[in-house]
Every structure is written in structure tokens, then in C-alpha cells.
Amino acid sequence: MNRLLALWQSTIGKKVAMAATGIVLVLFLISHMISNVLVFENPQHLDDYGAWLRSFGPLLWVARAGLLAAVVVHILAAWQLTQLSHAARPTNYNRHTLRVSTYAARTMRWGGVLVLVFIVFHILHLTLGWVHPDFVEGAVSRNLKSGLAVKPVAVFYAVAMVFLGLHLSHGVWSVFQTLGLNHPAWNRGRRVLAIGLAVLVAGGLLTIPLAALLGLL
């Protein structure tokens, strides 16, 4: 434990924590994406999935707690490191040419914030139903349909997924770098994998709000 604390003390350690929690979140999202696109095949599946989730009872809460913890650690580290970086360059250049950094890399922070906002809204929306027009406990696919029937909400979902995609396209590659999983032999592979995962996860989820907007849901 104190070793982990020692790790947390250093900027590199915090970054490693982000990588680790990032991975947890990515894994969750993969399963979350799969379970959600089931709604296309047959809404019932999604409901069954929801019911199946709930059948775990307390375990589910453990999982939720775990997810929450991951998000908290991830964001705490992101926040602290961002503060450090801003303090490290008090006066900016009149001219600064960024030559290679990607748009994704540069939007990690604000994109992240947007994703955060999304997550909060999303829980209130589809899990607790507080911000849902007519929420029916347990009727997952129904809630989803009726929830995304509200155009602005669907649009927000869509935009959030685009930024999530960007976040992952840099994030997943970044994980390798942060954990030092690199070798000239497969450094190209890291890029491909990152973009692949981003497209798969974010793209997969994106289909749902898009479908809703196009009235296909």
C-alpha cells in the first residue's frame, strides 16, 4: 500500500494511476457498448441484461463502487497533473507552433470534462431517472427509447460520444507510453489498437443516439 502511495507521490505515478483507471473504464465501456447495441437486435435483450445486472444485488453495487472509484481517481489525478502543468508555464508564448501533437491529445482535458458531465447526467438520466421525462424502473430499453426521443438529449449523447472517441484515441495509445509498454517492433500497433478501440467503443455507442435522432430506434 505505501508503495502505491509512493507511486502516487510522483507525477509519473499519478499518470500510471490514470492509465490503470483508464483501462478499467475502457473495459467497462466495451461491455457497456456491447450490451447497449443489443437494443437494435431486440429491445428485450437489453432489458434482460438490465435485469441480469440487478440480479447480482449487492455485487452490482460493488462493481458500481469500483467504477465510481476508478472515475474519481482518474479525474483526481487528471486534475492535479493539469494544475502542475499550468503552474509549470505561467507566462505563455506569443507564438507557439505545435507540430505533431494530435487534436485528440490537446482535447484530453476539456474532452474529459465533457465526458464527466455526460456521465453524471447519464446516471441521473438512465439509471436514476431523475432527469428523465417518464422513467420506469427496470424498463431499460423503454427508458432508453423515450429518453433519447428528446432531441437535445440525443444530440448531447452523440456529441459526448465523439469526444469520448477522441479521448480514447489518444488515451489508449498513451496508456502504453505511460506504462512503458513500448518496443519499436510494435509501436505502430499501439496507434492502430488505440484508434481501433476508440472507433469500436465510442462508434458503437454513438450508433444509439444517432439511431434515435434518425427515428430508427
Partner: peptide, 21 residues
């Protein structure tokens, strides 16, 4: 790394601009 942090340098978010420069 301890000293690097103590000097108040920023944290790496893997932009890659350094290698280019």
C-alpha cells in the same frame, strides 16, 4: 524523477512535441 518534480516542471501527457523539437 523526484528532483524533476521538485523543480516544478510540468507532467507529460504524451504530446510528442519534445521529440520533434
Amino acid at each position: 524523477v523526484q528532483q524533476m518534480d521538485a523543480e516544478g516542471f510540468g507532467n507529460c501527457t504524451n504530446y510528442g512535441e519534445c521529440q520533434e523539437a
